[in-house]
Design a protein around this nucleic acid. Structure first.
Lengths: 221, 221
DNA sequence: AAAATATTTTAGATTTGTCTAAATATTTTT
DNA sequence: AAAAATATTTAGACAAATCTAAAATATTTT
C-alpha cells in the first residue's frame, strides 16, 4: 500500500510524538505539523478508514499495528538518506534533515534496500538515532562500538570488551579510557580502519579489531 | 523558483518531444503524458502565466528560454540519479528510469551539485544520454550511438565503446567495423532493439546493448 | 451542578490538478 | 468553398488537502 506525502507526514508525526503507546490529541498534532486542528480531524478520519490508527471522536488517537509499521518504514527511509547525505555527500549534520524530509517520500522498496546495503547497513543516523532495518527492527541500544558510531558526532567511551594486556597497551598508548570523549572522523573502506579525534587534537587511526572492542554512548551533557 | 511535480513533468515532456525549437501540439503532449487534451490546455495556461512557454490559442506552444532552463535542470537531476542508481546501487539499466522519475522531483540544488561531485561529474547517463552540468551545458557530441541516430540517415561507425571479446565476436559476425556505413531502419519499442541496414543488403536487428556501444557520425562524403 | 473555558468537530469555501461533455477553431476532403 | 473530420478550448464537476468560522462536546472552575 502506498500513501501520499501528506498522509506519510501525519503518520510520522504521530509516531514521533507518542510512538504507538499513548494517545495523541488533535491540538498537539496540529501544532507539530504547523497546521490547523480542523485539518487534523479531516486527515484522521481518512487514516482511520485506512486502518492506520484507532480513533474515537473527541478521544484522541493512536497508531494501529499497521500504522506503526508504516511509520517505521518512513523513519527508515529518512534516516538512511540522512546517513547517505552525511557520510557520502559530506553534508554537515545540521543540513541533512531538510533534504531527507523530501527524499523520504520516494517509496521504492528496492531503492531503500539497495541504499541500505550500499551504506553497509548502518545502525544509527548522523544524529545518533537508530535506523530501523527492513523488517522494522531498531537497535534500542544507546551503546555502540566505535565502528558503528556516526561520523562527527560526540561520543563517550563506556566500555571495552577485550581486557587483554595487548588491548590495554594500545588503549594506554592512545590515551583512551572509560569516559574519554571523542569523535569518529573517517571510515577507510579498504581495511575498515577508523580515524578518531580526541580533544580537538590531531586525529589518528585505529584498526577495525580495536574499534570493534571500544563501546561508546552519547555523552551525558 | 520551484515548480510542482506536475508542472515539472509537463516541462520535461515538452522538452523531450521538441526541445525548444519546434512547436508542440496539445494532443501530442496529452498522448505523451497519458492525460487528456483538456488537462493539457489547463496546465499550459498556468505555465504561460509563469512565462515558461510561448503559447497562442490553437497554435501550439514552445518552451521559453526560462522554460528550457527549467527543463534542463530536471533532466540533469533525472540523469544524475540514473547514474547513481546504476553505478553505486547496482541497479540494471532497465530499472533506473522509473525510480529516477521520482527522485528527480527532489529540488535541493545543493543535493544535486554534491551528488554530481560525488559521482565524479559524469557526462553521460547509463543510457548514453548526456547529463547537463550545473550551468545547463551538455556534451553535444556529434558522435551518437546507433540508438540515438535518426532513422534512414546515412551513418559511419566511428567508435566502439565496449572492446570485450564478447562484443567483438558480435561485430565480426555482423561484419561491422570502424568506417562501416549503415542506416538505422526501425526502432522496436518492446526491447529497444534496432534494425540496421548495411550496403542495401537485407536489414537485420541488433539488441539495445550492442547498439548503445556502437558510435556513429555523419559520413565524410 | 452550573458556568466558563478549552478542545474538537462540522459546515462550507479554496486551491491544484484532473476529468467529461459541449462548443469552437482549424484542417482536410470532396 | 462548403462539408466533414480533427484538434483545441471552455464550462462545469470532482477529489485531495487545506482553511475559517461556527457548532458541538469535554473539561475545569466556581
Amino acid at each position: 500500500m502506498n500513501y501520499s506525502t501528506s498522509e506519510e507526514n501525519y503518520i510520522k508525526s504521530i509516531y514521533h510524538l507518542k510512538g504507538d503507546v499513548q494517545n495523541v490529541t488533535t491540538n498537539e498534532l496540529a501544532e507539530e505539523l504547523k497546521t490547523r486542528p480542523a485539518s487534523v480531524t479531516d486527515m484522521l478520519k481518512k487514516l482511520k478508514t485506512k486502518k492506520l490508527l484507532h480513533y474515537e471522536k473527541y478521544q484522541g488517537f493512536r497508531l494501529s499495528a499497521e500504522g506503526k509499521k508504516v511509520a517505521l518504514n518512513i523513519i527508515r527511509r529518512h534516516r538512511l538518506w540522512e546517513f547517505f547525505l552525511s557520510e557520502k555527500l559530506k553534508f554537515t549534520w545540521d543540513e541533512v534533515h531538510e533534504v531527507a524530509e523530501e527524499l523520504e517520500h520516494v517509496t521504492s522498496k528496492k531503492l531503500i534496500d539497495k541504499l541500505d546495503e550500499y551504506l553497509g547497513f548502518p545502525k544509527f543516523d548522523p544524529h545518533g538515532d537508530p535506523i530501523p532495518d527492513n523488517k522494522g527492527k531498531m537497535h534500542t541500544a544507546t551503546h555502540l562500538t566505535i565502528s558503528d558510531w556516526p561520523l562527527n558526532t560526540p561520543a563517550e567511551v563506556s566500555k571495552v570488551s577485550d581486557q587483554s594486556n595487548d588491548m590495554l597497551e594500545i588503549l594506554k598508548h592512545q590515551q583512551i579510557s572509560i569516559g574519554t570523549r571523542l569523535e569518529v572522523k573517517k571510515h577507510f573502506v579498504f581495511d575498515r580502519s577508523i580515524e578518531i579525534e580526541i580533544n580537538n587534537a590531531l586525529p589518528f587511526s585505529i584498526s577495525e579489531q580495536v574499534a570493534r572492542n571500544i563501546w561508546v554512548k552519547k555523552p551525558q551533557s
